[in-house]
Nucleic acid binder design. Structure first.
Length: 389
DNA sequence: AATGCGTGGCC
DNA sequence: TGGCCAAGCAT
């Protein structure tokens, strides 16, 4: 049975406590809470100095949590710094045009995250007078704010007892308690949420943010997906997976669906002044509202004043989370009039030619436009490869 | 419940 | 090097 003195107990619970240990303090056992205290004191010593941890500004924490969805800390840091300097507060983000907002997210992926965030910022201005509501139900109602973001922001900023269960927390609990429910299942989520809530119920207010962040920090630094560092883990003693040799098989993961390949052809059309023709994608679905080369799945353009350069043609492969594009890029030059060669008159070689998923919005882009329009990484890679960027 | 939604790093 | 994986949310 583990025992701990009441004063040590208090000083771990309250990181700002300066109370001293007296010789007549009673010793009592708190075995069910011991692992919680160990995690908190581990976090006190091992927490990383991350940009968003220097702030208790709800907007800053919110931005960081949105960026961190399915995205690594090291990737997020420079984006976070830049985004906060461009859009330092909710009102700035709410009133900004979408284009520079998407541009600030360029390369991060999952672009609907930032479109939802901007929509949510506008909702906060309208519905909550510009203040992030310190209430789970109200905050959760905003666009792009799910159970995790809601718990993370409100517990970290306002010390509200709302669990934040992410992939890290699911992994830590699945191993510690030996749960074999698959990742992403309702059951595992529910169990983890409840386990976190049980601790939040008795922790003092000032430890609520540390509990939320400590659980995730342990999952990020020690209880990592592969090759877990159990030797450094403050919870190794009571860990079920450790005791049963199941650390490598927990949490159970469901097999992924196969990634389908989509073939496309893309037109890299440049004019005499070095401008390139881009199109904007529709405002829903994959890469919504981003700009890219005009592309299609079959056929090819046979256009007047256009000279193809098949010897410069190259193939690019781009892997998304759920599909893979295989793209043949066809470089070409146009001279003479600066019309949009893809508009009107249907001068397309094959009737079956489809304009992929472009929305019809097309534009000749000079250096200024290229630096302003948001593009995905494949488009950026192609433009760089051909020296347009 | 299952699927759509990006990207880069890791082994 | 290709498959796996990372601080989720919407539908």
């Amino acid at each position: 049975m583990l025992t701990i003195s009441s004063k040590i107990h208090d000083s771990i619970l309250n990181s700002t406590s300066h109370s001293k240990l007296h010789h007549d303090d009673k010793i009592y056992a708190v075995p069910e809470k011991d692992w919680v205290l160990k995690l908190l004191s581990w976090y006190d010593v091992n927490k990383r100095d991350l940009p968003w941890r220097r702030s208790k500004n709800p907007y800053a924490i919110w931005v960081s949590e949105v960026m961190l969805q399915q995205t690594r800390v090291e990737t997020v840091i420079p984006y976070f710094e830049r985004f906060m300097s461009l859009f330092p507060d909710l009102q700035t983000l709410a009133t900004a045009p979408e284009e520079p907002v998407l541009k600030a997210w360029e390369g991060l992926g999952y672009y609907s995250r930032v479109r939802n965030l901007q929509e949510a910022a506008r909702q906060v201005m309208e519905r909550f007078d510009g203040q992030v509501p310190p209430d789970p139900k109200a905050f959760r109602s905003l666009k792009g704010v799910g159970a995790y973001i809601c718990g993370a922001v409100l517990s970290i900023v306002f010390q509200i007892r709302e669990p934040a269960v992410d992939g890290n927390v699911c992994r830590v609990f699945a191993r510690f308690f030996g749960w074999d429910d698959p990742v992403g299942s309702t059951m595992l989520l529910k169990k983890a949420w409840q386990a976190s809530m049980e601790q939040l119920a008795w922790l003092p207010d000032e430890r609520v943010p540390d509990w939320t962040q400590g659980l995730m920090e342990l999952g990020a630094l020690v209880c990592i997906p592969r090759s877990a560092r159990c030797g450094e883990c403050p919870l190794a003693d009571g860990c079920t997976a450790r005791a049963q040799g199941k650390v490598e098989i927990l949490p159970v993961r469901k097999p992924r669906k196969e990634n389908q390949e989509i073939y496309r052809k893309a037109l890299l059309l440049t004019d005499e002044s070095g401008r390139v023709l881009l199109t904007q994608r529709p405002d829903k679905g994959l890469l919504a509202n981003m700009w890219e080369l005009p592309s299609f799945e079959q056929g090819f353009y046979d256009l007047e004043h256009v000279k193809y350069e098949p010897e410069r043609s190259e193939q690019f492969r781009h892997v998304f989370s759920h599909l893979t594009w295989v793209v043949d890029v066809m470089p070409a030059r146009i001279d003479g009039e600066k019309i949009n060669p893809l508009e009107g008159s249907g001068r397309v070689a094959e009737e079956s030619c489809q304009y992929g998923s472009d929305s019809g919005q097309r534009s000749w882009c000079d250096k200024e436009a290229l630096s302003r329009l948001p593009m995905n990484n494949l488009t950026l890679k192609i433009l760089k490869k051909y020296g347009v960027l």
